[in-house]
Write a protein that binds this DNA or RNA. Sequence first.
DNA 1: TCATCACCTGGAGA
DNA 2: ATCTCCAGGTGAT
Length: 282
Amino acid sequence: MQKTSTINIETTINSGQVFLWNKIEDQWIGVDGQDIIILNQSPFCARSSSNNINNFFREDDNLKEILLNISSDKIVAGAIKQSPGLRLIRQDPFQCYISFICSSNSSIQNIKSMLENLCKKFGTRQEFNGYELPTFPKAEILAKASMKDLTECRLGFRAKYVKEASQAVDSGKIDFVQLKKTDYQTALESLKNVLGIGNKVADCIALFSLDKMEAFPIDRWTQRILLKYYKKFFDNITEKPVTEKKYGKLHEEIVEYFGPYAGYAQQFLFKMERDLNEKKWL
DNA sequence: TCATCACCTGGAGA
DNA sequence: ATCTCCAGGTGAT
């Protein structure tokens, strides 16, 4: 649908969606599940070791319509103007799931370090175009990992979450193929049954890997954004922590206001506010 | 139903 | 040098 030439790789990689990426000279090398991906800005080129890039940048979305739709809000329109090449990424679900479980009460740099440690210890080394690096561990491997090995990856209190979450996938209790097919609410409820996954993490997984574009992760930053620009539009936004029930109500208001592509709006707003505060990325 | 609080870890600032 | 505080939250009282 969209032209790949309009994608800004650096902006997109540095928007908090993905962590296992490094810039080497002028290209970005990253891990997505069992694949290694190499990205070049100009001339634009995206190569995957699996030979199947699988719409990594969601090229199948009708971007023009989506951007037009969410631009009815002036703040969002401004955010898009600021980062026109920003895109949502369609990630490997298991990697995305573990990544955001690891994100709780942590920083981007720390999350990246935890995930790199997991790859080094449990991943399979793969060679692609002169680069050799370990890909993301499979669920069955992490499900059988010892707590000692997981703790050595510096996961802290998340070690137990990662193990149980991996077991849920390995046993089939969590089935990403199925979750992609179901509706947003059903997918969310299913994910939230897993230890270490609450509303925010579930929304990240749903938006970044399960094609749920109405997912709108509400974290500290999003909450700040809503308070700063949208206080008068939403009844359920306060500076207090967003409780379980408030989260659901707030999300309803958000989808009503931003529409079915609320997740896209969130991504532009998040990028805008983090950049405004000069927060570091990868 | 909701408010507090602890939690691994690494980095920044006092 | 040492301490405190905080970072894409979540789970247990």
